[in-house]
Design a binder for these strands. Structure first.
Lengths: 292, 292
DNA sequence: GTAGCTCATGAGGTTTTCCTATGAGTGCGC
DNA sequence: GCGCACTCATAGGAAAACCTCATGAGCTAC
């Protein structure tokens, strides 16, 4: 025979109120029900918890001590449960998010601001990583959500499209191409280009697009950091081939961008989550903000 | 709707075993029962605790975290309950005992040794005090048990007789009264007496006995400590009127004792407890040893 | 002495809980 | 490619736990 939370609550209430009747009132049960709970607990523990007399009950030392111990445990329990319910209501919680550096710098801040506005209690732990690593982090469960590239069908990952990022031609001030509505690949191939470094996925994307068009790429400059690349273009050293969403472009005056008509220069940025793994309420909230 | 210990145990077992079926096995319930417990807990908390698939379940981060918190609480609870049960079985526990100094020095050590032999885990906090204070301590609940004098009918205290302590005549070596079987009050009144100090209850007892016999008491010496009194008698300075149970008499060679035929020189030593207050199991054990 | 308080008791009914049997989805081995 | 084995989910009926209402019994106080 075992004890239950009801019995434990009955004990603490009875010790606190000093009366079975008042304890029953507090717990919204009838007095006989409470009497039975206490008796069951006494039998289960093999301990007399109260001395009964016709003019009331008085806790035994054991009852007093147990009530104090139980009260502490009940408080602990209440705290844990309240925390869980709070998280369920999106009033608190933590999401671990793995995200591409470019997105972290551009799209993410606004999204986090919207999340904070809607759910001020939710904290987001952001980890920026290259596309491959974003996927790995989500697969390993180290990140609940990831923002990365569409990488084709992965059995373990589920992708939700967020937006498309395309490489655009970035023209130095006064460049003749500014007269065009768009800049074709052949024209770009013939011009000196400012590209990102050969290790980056942006560069790989560019290489593939040119190769598919039967063109060779002619990098005049390679920069690791976006801000360097932008500065080089601005100095007139070449045409940049850079992601349209890069914040560095938006804040750089005098630079004009033109689309490049190639489907291969587009990247679908997607939200990644583990397939079959439900999200925590906090992650759910973040996903909604990102997808909405 | 609220949560229960069963549900909490179901969660921790399921997270630990990684399977509803194995958890059910461990908790000795059927698998559907466990499934329902988990679901009820999820509904109560508003949190998804497991991701279900046809090939098994996997705890969500929330489930994992809650299971860990709950496990700690369950361990706490288990410890408290185990402690209570241990005390109920007299395998541990504490008794606060108030006791007359004379009894503490004489009867008590043997009793505590017997208690230790029977119940090694029980600790006894001994507090020696004069009779009036013994009664007060028990009344106030500061001592669960008391060893004191029979003090007539007290509404709050219950008395169980332990033994009788009578004042006996303690004769110096070679005293002529050694030829007698007993020493009457008149003979004592005529002799120089070694008594305890006027504040002590022993002295009061002696005064009353003499007064009732129409005799005046003639203290030659008054000693506060029993050992002093014994030493005075041994030095031949008078006849002692001391409690028969005093250990100092038993270990003093050459001293002989003779009963004094007066019912007023007897004291009933009783075990005191609060009326209507049940004893802790540890106190129960001590009472048994004392009364047995 | 009676009214008012306490907790205990007993009967009856309701709610909860559980178990057995079965279903349904997935992975594995033949 | 097809069952077989394993997982958890579902459903219906039975058992157990629980609660409430009504009442009893012991004590206190007026």
């Amino acid at each position: 025979m075992s004890y239950s939370l009801r019995q434990i609550r009955a004990l603490t209430a009875a010790v606190e109120t000093g009366s079975f009747g008042r304890a029953a009132l507090r717990l919204h049960v009838s007095q006989p029900a409470l009497t039975l709970q206490i008796r069951a607990l006494e039998e289960s523990l093999g301990v007399t918890l109260f001395d009964r007399s016709a003019r009331g009950v008085r806790p035994t030392p054991a009852g007093q001590a147990l009530a104090a111990s139980f009260q502490r445990i009940l408080d602990d329990l209440e705290t844990v449960v309240a925390g869980a319910r709070e998280q369920a209501q999106r009033r608190s919680g933590v999401v671990h998010l793995a995200v591409l550096p470019s997105v972290a710098a551009n799209l993410l801040p606004g999204a986090l601001a919207r999340l904070r506005a809607a759910h001020p209690g939710i904290r987001v732990m952001v980890r920026d990583a290259v596309a491959r690593r974003v996927a790995a982090l989500v697969k390993a469960g180290e990140a609940e959500l990831g923002i990365g590239h569409a990488a084709g069908p992965e059995p373990e990952l589920e992708e939700t499209p967020l937006f498309e990022d395309s490489l655009v031609a970035v023209l130095p001030p006064g460049h003749p191409f500014a007269a065009l509505k768009e800049v074709g690949l052949p024209a770009l191939a013939a011009a000196p280009l400012v590209l990102t470094d050969p290790e980056s996925s942006l560069r790989t994307l560019a290489e593939h697009a040119f190769a598919a068009a039967g063109l060779a790429i002619r990098p005049a400059y390679e920069a690791t950091y976006m801000s360097t690349a932008v500065a080089l273009v601005r100095a007139g050293l070449g045409i940049g081939l850079l992601p349209a969403t890069a914040v560095e472009l938006r804040v750089a005056p005098l630079l004009e961008t033109r689309p490049v008509p190639s489907p291969l220069l587009r990247r679908r940025i997607v939200l990644l989550r583990r397939r079959g793994a439900s999200l925590s309420p906090a992650a759910e909230a973040l996903a909604e903000v990102l997808e909405g």
